[in-house]
Amino acid sequence: MGEYLLEVKGLSVSFCQYEKGWKRSRIQVIRELTVSVRTGEMVAVVGASGSGKSLLAHGIMGVLPYNASVSGEIRYQGEILTEKKIRQLRGKEIVLVPQSVSYLDPLMKVGKQVENGKKGRTGQCREALGRYGLGPETEQLYPFQLSGGMTRRVLISTAVIEKPKLVIADEPTPGLHLEAARRVLGHFREMADEGAGVLLITHDLELALQTADRVVVLYGGMTVEEADREAFQQEETLFHPYSRALYRAMPEHGFSFVPGSQPYVKEMPEGCPYQTRCREVKESCRKFVPLRKTERGSVRCVLWGGEESR
């Protein structure tokens, strides 16, 4: 495995909001989020809806809304990824595969959008679309004329038409049937094998485990565990109760389901975000829990008393 390409350490994102009248409040949607991607590596970020996956992607790309404030550290190739730097790199070295059709301009034809306004890329555009089974006629369609699966392929084409070093793919597979989803992930795998880094955002742990090298588990905007693929083969090599719950929820492990749901961002408790559902909850879960090294990664849980990670 190569050098660190992307390192996100202790990232937090909060939004400034006006509630009833003029009361200003700050809601914290991401805190203590830690993820890294090495060259040639495919890392999956797994988390439930609303756990802050898209915001992580937008935060790295520097496209969060104006009312968002970000703290923590984002490094690219070892250097702090400043606003100026990401402006130069995005769309070229670092690309985003966005989550849904709303990220396409509703009044612009697909071909033009894939080419992204750069002349002389008709051939590349056709090739990129063709790679995912979309013929040249797709270039003349408007986004509203695409099916869910076609949209997905078009969004992916916008990334592969560039020659990126880092791909951030926000849920690239929903809407695709299993075969197509595997093929798409296979392409990302190829890009990683050719030396790029891939950050795959998904809520589907099973699919992630088929191609990713490492998996980062998010809960309530926080990294709760990070481990390599092998660690996810058995429950015993996972340490956070939430990762274990995810493991048990996979079809081949019995579909078992933990009652309750992820707290809404405004009701997020101090300390471990999983404390409201955890069966092994302790008093110390209510305070900040550091990320600690495990055999195959790191975990943020009071049940694990290893050395603090980095």
Partner: peptide
């Protein structure tokens, strides 16, 4: 504030190009 302008930014389009193109 739309998603497609966010994505245009993420693809390296300048503000000027965003105003004209989108």
């Amino acid at each position: 504030e739309s998603d497609y302008v966010l994505f245009a930014r993420a693809r390296g389009e300048t503000e000027r190009s965003i105003i004209w193109r989108h």
